[in-house]
């Protein structure tokens, strides 16, 4: 089935057993998913405590393998500390009012765990939590940008982080200085196949 054929079927509304908390406005939720784009420059306006609470609550609702929750997050809002961490993160371009350090928490594993499989899964879970954070930011009218270009050891030192926390991604967030400009994506029929790749 092509995307066009699939889209010919009208939406049927919520299924009869929709999970609690399902969006009463699926169109609005899908619009948030479709329209998020990277924001690298921010106004100087701080993010409110209520918005920070909403962001981190959405973040930790992300999928996590075996409900291991092998993650830890540091929300940096103190300006001087944030600027020092940013100095060791070339991938953070702008000057955000909030910087999230998303970490893989290796203390959440036991000796019985298959380290290779479970720990690789843990990094994926951190990435999914970061995506939740960024989508929540977009839904609140904020912007965010993930960065993987940073030096973990200086950041670990600046933030008094224990050895079992491995920074995986940094996310800058704040009020967008400019309207979002979604980037071009490959055609959906080029990247999505149905039932087989043929």
């Amino acid at each position: 089935m092509t995307a066009r054929a699939r889209n010919a079927t009208p939406p049927s509304g919520s299924p009869p057993h929709a999970p609690p908390g399902s969006s009463p406005d699926p169109g609005g939720a899908l619009r948030v998913l479709r329209t998020r784009s990277v924001i690298r420059e921010f106004t100087g306006e701080p993010i409110t405590d209520a918005d920070v609470d909403a962001l981190v609550t959405a973040m930790v609702a992300a999928p996590t393998g075996s409900n291991r929750q092998a993650w830890a997050f540091i929300v940096i809002r103190e300006p001087q500390r944030l600027l020092s961490v940013r100095a060791f993160a070339p991938g953070v371009i702008g000057t955000p009012p909030l910087l999230l350090v998303a970490c893989h928490d290796h203390s959440r594993y036991t000796d019985e765990d298959d380290a290779r499989v479970v720990r690789e899964l843990g990094r994926l879970c951190v990435a999914m939590a970061v995506e939740n954070f960024m989508l929540a930011a977009h839904a609140l009218g904020l912007g965010a940008c993930p960065a993987s270009s940073f030096l973990p050891e200086p950041i670990r030192l600046l933030l008094d982080m224990p050895a079992h926390l491995e920074p995986v991604l940094l996310v800058s967030a704040g009020h967008p200085a400019h309207p979002p400009q979604p980037s071009e994506r490959r055609d959906i029929d080029e990247v999505v196949r149905y039932d087989s790749y043929a």
Binding site: S84, R86, A87, F88, A89, P90, S149, F150, L151
Partner: peptide, 21 residues
């Protein structure tokens, strides 16, 4: 002085990162 020190840190961090980027 702090701002200049952070700029120096940025240059060093960029240099280190570029070894693997």
């Amino acid at each position: 002085d702090t701002e200049l020190a952070r700029l120096a840190a940025y240059l060093l961090a960029s240099s280190r990162s570029l070894l693997t980027e």
